[in-house]
Design a protein around this nucleic acid. Structure first.
Lengths: 340, 340
DNA sequence: TTGAAAGCGCTAACAG
DNA sequence: CTGTTAGCGCTTTCAA
């Protein structure tokens, strides 16, 4: 029994009014022209028939589709992607929008393609999301489509964007250590030349120097993709004559390697060595023993903010772009103790 | 300099033809009525103007939007979600479709809401995805919208669906052990009463029994969410008088606990104890030392299959629903050796 | 306070 | 082989 979807005309007929009146009654539009009694009658008829507006037809008329494009550069393999999408999704839904998702696998050509495909569908705006913090130019093809960058920013601030406050987050982690009394704080960083590396490294350098400690000799690097990078780097640091009493890791995966190195050298965490890290990854930080104190990347919040900003810009396309820094909260666990 | 988007009429005018001809020329439709020369002229004009069809207008006319709804029950927090989405996304894109995503956070009311929101947007079909294998009924509100279940199935086979071949995957893992010579194979399972538990447990029971080994006494269970569940269960198994020479774990997280238990008891993996597991989670199985042999859940492939099946059903809505079992391949690593 | 009618941009049936 | 015309279902003037 597949009944035909009712159209607005059906509702109007059932309520004994014109489609114009029905439309206005349902949308609360047209000022105070619709009588309260009429509105009720229309509403009742719509509910009775199980009417759902056809947003394609509406979109053709209003040039608004209530859809936002979400262009991600690697939705699948990045564990953070979910939170970012979810933040964007929630904010969108609350405002009556839905997300059209495209994954570009990081290929620039794909990005242009994706933007085109979204524009064909008349999305109201686009979220351009990257899976790690970077600086990039908005593709030309975006044209006048409203757009907000998620986890990246433009060199010139020409588009609204939100990125994590890496500096603040790094300081948050370091303060966990210095508040416990550590001064010789080592840093295990990644070899990849990414924004996050530069900011975390510079902030760490500044922080230890502020205690009169020389950062050189307390720094080691390795590839961040697997824990072995952290292991090797930590080994170098911990076997040095004047080893650090604490280590700040570029990320949780490297911290896994640091834990392994410490264990191998007979150093107990946190008694012989304190460790803090970045990312606060769900499957890692709380699973390590002892639990790893780590600064979280606020993916959910960034997703939300970007969407809310995009929605704002839909109403006011001329508003000045804003560059937002999202705070990175520290998840405190059991990997920090005073030095002995 | 925001130039107005060109419409089909502009292309037609530029090419000196009617909009009907332009439409057919661009879409290769209307049989052999369009002259090759005309088609070229239209194509050139379109390219020249940078014409992109307005798919909203087209959708209103054709009642096809080239969009698929993807309803997930927890996109954000599940590490597998990405692969499933990506599989669906790739298959959709290849066919010229885009995915409209909604996350229901597992709430049934949200699911009905989501389906409604998607139907309003006239999506051509819906993928109903769950983040773990389960049996459920398709919500009434789906009506006549074509629909395929992803990682779940209906009790009555009334809708097409794809789920992992848990039985085959379990056997694959167990054969790794028995081929190495193991007979006393223990099983660490989850307390949660999910499909996966039942199938893996039953298959294991059958397998060890086929070697004349009594499964009872080789089974232990615990919560699967954290590794401690696996730790406790393994402890019980490994401290027993006649301990197993190998353990098959419900999933990788529990395997982490099994590794810890073995280490604590001074048992080396794989020499004193072989371990195999399920899920092949990216951040766990290859990161453990030694690398964990684990059966993978084919999320990408399931996402693809479901989408391709949905696309098939769009062309032929009357086709009989099909229940697909997707094979689960084993990722062989270093956690298995012959018993000594 | 309401109805009639135009039209969003496209495709498809019907003429020519 | 091509043009004319009539809508798809909705919103929004313009009249009444």
């Amino acid at each position: 029994m597949t009944t035909k979807q009712p159209r607005l005309a059906d509702v109007a007929k059932a309520a004994g009014v014109s489609t114009a009146t029905a439309s206005m009654a349902l949308n609360d539009t047209g000022g105070r022209r619709i009588g309260a009694e009429t509105r009720e009658r229309v509403r009742a008829a719509a509910a009775e028939l199980g009417y759902r507006p056809n947003t394609v037809a509406r979109g053709l008329r209003t040039r608004r589709t209530q859809m936002l494009g979400f262009v991600g550069d690697d939705v699948a393999t990045t564990p953070f992607a979910g939170q970012m999408i979810r933040g964007a999704h929630d904010a969108a839904r609350e405002a009556g929008y839905l997300l059209l998702m495209v994954d570009t696998m990081g290929e620039p050509d794909e990005t242009a393609e994706a933007i085109g495909a979204l524009q064909e569908r008349q999305i109201d705006g686009i979220l351009l999301a990257t899976m790690y913090h970077q600086v990039l130019k908005v593709p030309e093809v975006i044209g006048s489509t409203p757009c907000v960058l998620l986890d990246s920013r433009t060199p010139d601030g020409s588009a609204s964007s939100v990125v994590p406050d890496e500096r603040g987050g790094t300081l948050g982690a370091l303060v966990e250590l210095s508040a416990a009394g550590h001064r010789r704080i080592g840093h295990v960083t990644t070899v990849e030349q990414v924004e996050a590396r530069h900011i975390r490294l510079a902030t760490w350098r500044e922080h230890v120097a502020s205690y009169g400690v020389d950062p050189d000799g307390l720094l080691a690097e390795g590839p961040a993709a697997m824990s072995s990078g952290g292991y090797e780097a930590a080994m170098r640091l911990l076997r040095a004559p004047d080893r650090p009493t604490a280590i700040f890791c570029f990320n949780d995966r490297m911290a896994v390697g640091v834990y392994r190195a410490a264990a191998e050298l007979g150093l107990s965490i946190p008694d012989d060595l304190s460790v803090v890290s970045y990312d606060d990854q769900e499957l890692i930080a709380p699973e390590l023993i002892p639990g790893l104190t780590s600064t979280a990347l606020p993916h959910y919040e960034m997703g939300r903010w970007a969407t809310e900003e995009l929605l704002r810009r839909l109403d006011d396309p001329e508003a000045a772009p804003v560059q937002h820094l999202m705070p990175c909260p520290v998840s405190r666990r059991d990997s920090v103790a005073p030095p002995r």
